Amino acid sequence: MKGPNYALALALAEAKWNNSETARRINHHARQHGHSGVAVDKARVGRWIRHGERPRPPVPQLLADLLTEELGQPYTPQSLGIAPSYGVLVALDEHEHQALAEHAAAANMPLEHYAKALLRLALSQGRKGPV
Rank of each mutant, 00 (worst) to 15 (best):
K2I: 05
Y6T: 07
L10K: 15
A13C: 08
E14F: 00
A15P: 03
A15H: 08
K16W: 08
W17S: 01
W17R: 00
N19I: 06
N19Y: 14
S20Q: 13
S20W: 10
S20L: 11
S20A: 14
S20D: 09
T22P: 08
T22V: 03
A23W: 02
R24G: 09
N27E: 03
R31K: 15
R31Q: 15
Q32Y: 01
H35R: 07
G37L: 15
V38Y: 04
V45K: 06
G46W: 10
G46A: 05
R47N: 12
R50C: 03
H51M: 03
G52V: 01
E53G: 00
E53V: 00
R54S: 00
P55S: 05
R56D: 07
R56S: 11
Q61K: 12
Q61L: 08
Q61F: 02
Q61A: 11
L66R: 01
L67T: 15
E69G: 08
G72H: 04
G72I: 09
Q73K: 15
Q73F: 01
Q73E: 12
Y75T: 10
Y75W: 10
T76Y: 10
G81L: 08
I82G: 01
A83V: 02
A83E: 01
S85I: 08
Y86S: 07
V90M: 11
A91H: 08
D93R: 07
D93T: 10
E94K: 06
H97Q: 09
A99C: 09
A99W: 11
A99E: 12
L100E: 04
L100D: 04
H103Y: 09
H103N: 12
A105N: 12
A106S: 07
A107T: 06
A107V: 03
N108R: 13
L111D: 05
H113V: 10
H113I: 04
Y114T: 02
A115V: 03
A117C: 05
A117N: 12
A117D: 13
L118I: 13
L119M: 13
R120F: 01
R120S: 04
A122L: 14
A122F: 12
A122G: 15
L123C: 11
Q125A: 13
Q125P: 03
G126Y: 12
G126P: 05
K128Q: 12
G129S: 11
P130V: 03
V131C: 05
V131R: 12
